[in-house]
């Protein structure tokens, strides 16, 4: 079973690596735009990843709370995830 410390580490890592990966893409995209005047593909991918990071965080919370058998919090995470999907679809 997942303990509290590992759970928080999992959330921390999801956020940290999400931000780091998007930062790399944004930086590379910005440089390629300045040096080669390329299109915004890399930058747009970086922005999309940055915006997806909070969604990944909610998914991790859902999985974590479910593994720790804290079903009320898992349900809350699921509701937030569902509402985010609705927000994107409308």
């Amino acid at each position: 079973m997942l303990d509290e410390k590992k759970f928080l580490k999992l959330i921390q890592q999801t956020l940290f690596y999400g931000v780091l990966a998007s930062l790399v893409l944004l930086g590379a995209g910005f440089l390629s735009d300045i040096v080669w005047n390329r299109d915004f593909y890399l930058m747009n991918t970086g922005i999309a990843l940055l915006l997806a990071t909070p969604v990944f965080r909610v998914v991790m919370l859902l999985c974590g709370f479910f593994k720790m058998r804290e079903y009320n919090f898992a349900m809350a995470s699921f509701m937030v995830l569902a509402l985010m999907v609705v927000a994107v679809l409308i």
Binding site: D33, F40, M43, I47
Partner: peptide, 28 residues
């Protein structure tokens, strides 16, 4: 606040309202 901001921003991204160059500089 990241959750509500991301949900709204995804809609704006789909509609092409985000200017990547400007967003990248501010985000850095």
């Amino acid at each position: 606040i990241g959750v509500s901001a991301a949900a709204s921003a995804i809609i704006f991204l789909k509609k092409g309202y985000i200017i990547p160059e400007l967003a990248v500089i501010i985000v850095m």
